[in-house]
Design a protein around this nucleic acid. Structure first.
Lengths: 152, 152
DNA sequence: CCTGAAAACCATAGCCG
DNA sequence: CGGCTATGGTTTTCAGG
């Protein structure tokens, strides 16, 4: 399960921009288009490339507010966790959810249009998720470094 | 700056999978390939589509640990913030950084291979970022809902 | 704004170093 | 494994409704 330097270069490139043609990708990493293509296919099959996605403009979508919400549950029993987690997965406004070590809290990431939208989101969706004991919202003032993929 | 239902459908599709051909995309949203293509181009020009990226496998890269690190600085003066932020942007292991409201803290997201790698990352990179007063690390035990784009 | 066809381009497979 | 070549499909453009 090792990665050659060529594979690393390919991963870095497609992680930054997957719209390059094999010819351009090859020029960047110093390989022919067909060599690139073969390696990229192999990387997909090994699971190192899971898919391809368009990155949308958050501001342009009008989703200018960004929150990290810490949630504690009333209990850590399996049914409570599962009910919470499936509810979270079903809500598109919740972009992301992690179960955290420590206080057995969750962190949710949500975006919304404006303060009223956040109030609705908070009151009608997050606070009403099953098993929620406490909610603490943290607002991002500014995205200092946007998520752009893993170091490879 | 309005989005038609067709545009929304296109955005949803390419956000989920940008490797679809225009023919497949057209079949999904009920348009001809050329109509899809023109709309998608327009969405790119309006900034609603910012780019295309490959999604890499975190586990397959060996980056199995995932942290959210809260950082407080010694001061909120402009030069201190700027020094911190440029240092953050230069470190690939720091995937993401937000300036947070409230205690004027930052949140960093980092990934690494194992506990020793995290110790190095914490001690040699994060704790030595310019202007850092306090650091508090929170480990994700499990990604309950992986980030998969905005609601549109 | 859409469709449909034509042109350019590109991914992909086979074959040879 | 990498490069080259051939081919089939896809993007991209354009005329016309």
């Amino acid at each position: 399960m090792q990665l050659s330097q060529a594979d690393r270069n390919i991963l870095r490139s497609v992680q930054r921009d997957s719209s390059l043609s094999m010819a351009d990708l090859g020029a960047l990493v110093g390989l022919s288009p067909s060599a690139c293509h073969r390696r990229l296919r192999a990387l997909e099959e090994r699971g190192l490339v899971k898919g391809y996605r368009a990155v949308l403009g958050q501001r342009e979508l009008g989703l200018v507010m960004h929150f990290f919400i810490e949630v504690s549950l009333v209990s850590q029993s399996e049914p409570v966790l599962e009910a919470f987690e499936s509810a979270v997965r079903a809500i598109p406004e919740i972009l992301e959810c992690h179960l955290m070590a420590g206080q057995s809290d969750y962190i949710l990431r949500v975006v919304c249009e404006d303060a009223p939208a956040f109030e609705r989101l908070h009151r009608d969706l997050v606070a009403r998720l099953p098993g929620v004991a406490r909610v603490h919202s943290n607002m991002s003032i500014r995205e200092v470094k946007p998520l752009a993929g893993y170091p490879v």
